[in-house]
Write a protein that binds this DNA or RNA. Structure first.
Lengths: 214, 214
DNA sequence: CGTGTAGGTGAACGTATATTCACCTACAAT
DNA sequence: ATTGTAGGTGAATATACGTTCACCTACACG
């Protein structure tokens, strides 16, 4: 595709840089561009690069190797990172929370925008074990995308996932009087409170998103 | 997150490389790694890199600058299939259903297992426009993953997404007496019926999954 | 105790890579 | 005809960067 404001030669160079980054996860050197495009002198490449930079199609870090990057969001498909594949946590007991990721029941691909500001590394998927939050639209069996967080980082009123015994539930979190309280919103469910060091309850973290297969 | 088989130091280096690539669209140099992690000698970095390569966490191109790349993920699913990126449909009028994919409001990565038996090509994402199905756990603003289907292929009782005017809603589908009926489950919403050739209503297809950002 | 491994310092070295210079061709515009 | 810009060659130069060497500390293990 011909980009506006570019000569044919500049266009070739730009396309090559983009495809090189896509394949190699790093920008090409001047010599590599020259070789691919049959430009014998790196100075020929240098002039193209200077033009592309002047026209804002690329950004550069002067004097550093492979110091080229594509300007803005030319296309959103540059996968600098593998798509986030989050583990679906399997059967774990609340007194062994460190085993959360040990025996995953599988993994699901999740769009990074569903993770909020959380890093994909710190997220796991839990399967909701009851209907205690059904009037918030969370039902038993739903996939909960959870950012693993220490309970001390949670704010009162946040939606969290917790492991009670071997069951995972979504609840509203509240910390007061040295205990954390897990509050359901659905009728027929009762609030539960735990000492913060209790082994029967492990707060996994903040619920960022939910997914459900019909 | 601690990766299996890595020491704490190797883990820090690996995490730094990954985050550097994500931010800069290119791998870091040894000096940059050292500076970020307070390792004064590039040789210290070199030994970490060598260990990471030996343990197959990264790949290298010897002697080339920034010649580090992350090893392919161990999950075969990522390598074979390009992740399905489904269009989120934007503002469309029900009398122009062929424009559904014309001006997408964006796109989201979706795990193929959330598509049921549907082909990714035939699926779109719609944003629920009301709370008519809230007791099925579908709320206004939810992402509906919809398999585009002609209404004649739908079975009575299936959950569908329909475009009414400029709004998209989820409803239970029912065809009888030459009309299709869109039945809500929430109190305060009424069933609506349309002649199958009516231009005010376009049935997009079957709802396969839902996603919601908290 | 010795031995192995992870991790580190500092320096020397070679090469990969960007920069710059002088000079050239082709082509369009004034 | 002159001027300006795009694109090019080839070579010299400076520096960014990876590699290697000698040597050190801390710690786990049998």
């Amino acid at each position: 595709m011909q980009k506006p404001g570019l000569t044919a030669g500049q266009n070739r160079v730009f396309d090559y840089i983009r495809s090189y980054i896509r394949e190699n996860q790093k920008p090409p050197t001047f010599a590599e561009i020259g070789e691919a495009l049959s430009i014998r002198s790196t100075n020929g490449v240098h002039k193209h690069i200077a033009a592309l930079e002047r026209k804002k199609y690329i950004n550069r870090t002067p004097r550093v190797s492979r110091g080229i990057s594509l300007a803005d969001s030319d296309d959103p498909f540059i996968l600098t990172d593998a798509p986030p594949l989050l583990p679906v946590i399997g059967r774990v007991r609340s007194d062994k929370p460190q085993q959360l990721r040990h025996h995953p029941a599988g993994a699901l691909l999740v769009d990074p925008r569903l993770l909020g500001r959380a890093e994909a590394d710190s997220c796991v998927i839990a399967i909701s074990g009851d209907d205690g939050m059904q009037d918030l639209g969370i039902r038993k069996g739903d996939f909960l995308i959870v950012e693993e967080t220490d309970w001390s980082q949670l704010l009162n009123g946040e939606l969290v996932a917790a492991l009670i015994g071997e069951r995972i539930i979504a609840r509203l979190f509240d910390f007061s009087r040295n205990r954390f309280h897990l509050r359901p919103t659905a009728r027929g469910y009762k609030e539960e409170a735990f000492r913060s060091d209790a082994s029967g309850c492990h707060v996994i973290g903040r619920v960022q998103s939910i997914m459900r297969n019909i």
